[in-house]
């Protein structure tokens, strides 16, 4: 097996929620709770989970925009958490981030040229003419033209703005792009265009994607493997065909049953989960999912399940499969 481009192990991130004026001390919010995953060079890992499960925290920790409380992140065999600030800053030219809402992630006072040239200015020095040509090439690559050089974000449609954000991410020719809900703020028709663009860019440039979303149907087409996240942990991880054909974790099964199918003939039984996601400030003991799990057993309330390899490339953290493994 090839050494993964990025390898995250036992990553934990706790936020200290400050107590109010009359509160009785702060509370620890466990956004990530011993999360492990890896992405091989050239592949796409889709990370799927409900809102509040820690997806965005994961993206920020991998880029070290947040300092994780515990665990390790290795990128191309470099321990990111051991780097000093300047080395980490330099490392970011190899790993870029695309955020959900392009209108809030693009500075409203910058025009297309300034936005796309920003990473170049941060990491390379080149004559202005050369930079302009490069920016135009990047705009062309994401399906825009030179006329966007002088446009400001409020003059763009959602899809155009997200293309600008992509051009920014591509400017330094990175190895890894972390996509944090890159299509969730867009219309459905535009979503498909952006996904197709991402697929094409990956093929042409040999990019590696860490694609974070709440929407299984979005990652289905683009991902090689899918990891399902629940309360700061990966509960199941397997190839993207396998997850639809053979979901094992009860949470994955519920998630899949809630995804609308374009085929009206396909009848599926919907699994309705009771309740809502427990608070990350006060996660349930044992398996974090036991409060909502339709197949809950006695041991689930007491013991935390370990991640087990139940088939080639298929990992599950669930007591149902502890015995069989």
């Amino acid at each position: 097996m090839v050494e993964p481009l990025i390898k995250v192990q036992d990553l934990s991130m706790q936020f200290l929620r400050k107590a109010g004026l009359f509160g009785r001390g702060g509370q620890r919010v466990r956004a990530l709770n011993g999360l492990s995953l890896h992405v091989r060079a050239g592949e796409t890992l889709g990370v799927v989970g409900e809102s509040g499960c820690g997806k965005s925290t994961l993206a920020r920790c991998v880029l070290r925009l947040l300092q994780p409380t515990a665990g390790s992140i290795r990128f191309d065999d470099v321990d990111l958490l051991a780097l000093n600030d300047e080395d980490m800053r330099r490392m970011r030219r190899r790993m870029q981030l695309v955020l959900q809402n392009p209108f809030s992630s693009l500075n409203p006072r910058m025009n297309g040229f300034e936005l796309v040239a920003e990473p170049l200015r941060a990491h390379r020095s080149m004559p202005r003419k050369e930079m302009r040509d490069l920016v135009v090439d990047l705009l062309t690559e994401v399906g825009l033209s030179a006329e966007f050089l002088s446009r400001h974000p409020h003059q763009l449609s959602g899809g155009q703005a997200q293309r600008i954000a992509l051009a920014r991410a591509l400017a330094l020719n990175p190895d890894l792009i972390i996509l944090d809900e890159p299509t969730s703020a867009l219309d459905v028709s535009v979503q498909a265009q952006i996904i197709n663009l991402l697929v094409r860019l990956q093929r042409q440039r040999g990019l590696t994607y860490l694609f974070i979303t709440h929407d299984l149907s979005v990652v289905q087409h683009i991902s090689d493997r899918i990891a399902v996240m629940y309360l700061g942990k990966i509960v199941e991880e397997t190839s993207s065909e396998d997850i639809f054909a053979n979901p094992r974790h009860p949470y994955t099964q519920a998630l899949l049953s809630s995804t609308p199918s374009p085929d009206p003939a396909a009848k599926r039984q919907r699994i309705i989960l009771p309740g809502t996601v427990p608070s990350a400030a006060n996660p349930p003991p044992g398996c974090a999912f036991h409060t909502r799990c339709p197949q809950v057993m006695e041991m689930c309330r007491a013991r935390i399940p370990h991640s087990r390899l139940i088939a080639e490339g298929h990992r599950v953290s669930c007591h149902l499969y502890e015995a069989s493994a």
């Binding site: 925009l65 330099r90 981030l97 809030s104």
Partner: peptide, 17 residues
């Protein structure tokens, strides 16, 4: 706290910039 500040940090833009 705006997202574009975080985006700029993610790109590797220096603090003073």
């Amino acid at each position: 706290e705006r997202a574009y500040i975080e985006a700029a940090r993610g790109i590797g833009v220096r603090h003073r910039v």
